[in-house]
């Protein structure tokens, strides 16, 4: 098949790990749905982007001084389709971004998100939920690029994997020289539910500036047995208990979705897939 490099990590590592780049079918990238958005200075916006049938989407956003945007991006592609999308966001001085990304659909998908904290005191809070089952393949590459002084970037990722699904999550905090007093935080928590899963994480932290505070943490493990036991002692079946625990794990992201109908949709979509396990 005709493959093309879709995204790469900012700094390469051993090739045998297979995480240096994501490739996708060339055909996938032919037709794109493109969205360019300018949030003017001092304006405050909320937006929802949904992918339900488009194979490729690009969103370019600039957020002006003192402006803010809450962007909710939901990838709910049908199970048999492949998908790729990218998001590029530039934040000016004191601009704020809240990005809520739900990556639960498609047979195989690649997404890349590039956030540039250009203006001083700009801040991005990014929350990601991904879920993989069956033989799905999930590939994500998120970069927070700290350029301005006193910029703040938080990347919180919650994932669940089951079946034979394969996932790569790359999250980069890149503190450029001059990003004095910037603060960056990245966390990925993955719950693994089946033996057949392959789970790859690449938390990258790059720094050319000493006056920063950067932290990242990844934890990957099976579902907490004590919690399961507790719930089952209250009469829940193992499957019901797992569902509940996983739901709780996803809640930090789900509760950020303001649209009740959408939230319900995602919630029941995940539940349904857990049933089919």
């Amino acid at each position: 098949m005709n493959k093309e490099i879709f995204s790469e990590i900012p700094m390469r590592t051993w090739n045998w790990l297979g995480v240096n780049e994501a490739t996708v079918d060339k055909d996938l990238l032919v037709e794109s749905q493109k969205l360019d958005i300018d949030i003017e200075a001092d304006h405050h916006e909320k937006m929802v982007v949904e992918y339900r049938k488009e194979s490729y989407g690009i969103v370019n956003i600039s957020i002006g001084e003192n402006a803010s945007l809450k962007l909710t991006q939901l990838q709910l592609m049908p199970e048999e389709r492949n998908h790729a999308n990218e998001v590029n966001i530039v934040l000016e001085k004191k601009a704020r971004l809240q990005l809520v990304a739900v990556e639960t659909g498609a047979k195989s998908f690649a997404s890349k998100v590039n956030i540039i904290l250009k203006g001083d005191k700009s801040q991005a809070d990014v929350s990601v939920l991904y879920f993989g089952d069956g033989d799905r393949s999930l590939d994500m590459n998120y970069v927070l690029d700290f350029q301005g002084r006193k910029t703040v970037g938080n990347l919180e990722v919650y994932g669940g994997l089951m079946g034979e699904s394969q996932k790569i999550f790359r999250g980069t905090l890149d503190f450029k020289q001059g990003s004095k007093q910037a603060k960056g935080y990245e966390k990925e928590n993955v719950v693994v539910l089946s033996k057949g899963v392959r789970n790859r994480s690449v938390p990258i932290m790059l720094s050319g500036e000493d006056d920063v505070v950067g932290n990242h943490a990844v934890s990957s493990g099976k579902i907490n047995e004590d919690k399961l036991h507790y719930l089952m002692s209250r009469g829940l079946s193992p499957a019901e208990a797992r569902k509940l625990v996983l739901e709780a794990a996803f809640n930090p992201v789900l509760e950020l979705i303001e649209d009740e109908v959408l939230r319900q949709e995602i919630d029941s979509y995940i539940k349904e897939r857990l049933e089919n396990e």
């Binding site: 790859r200 690449v202 790059l206």
Partner: peptide, 9 residues
């Protein structure tokens, strides 16, 4: 720079 990779099956 910090570049760790975890590959877990």
């Amino acid at each position: 720079d910090t570049l760790p990779t975890m590959d877990i099956e």
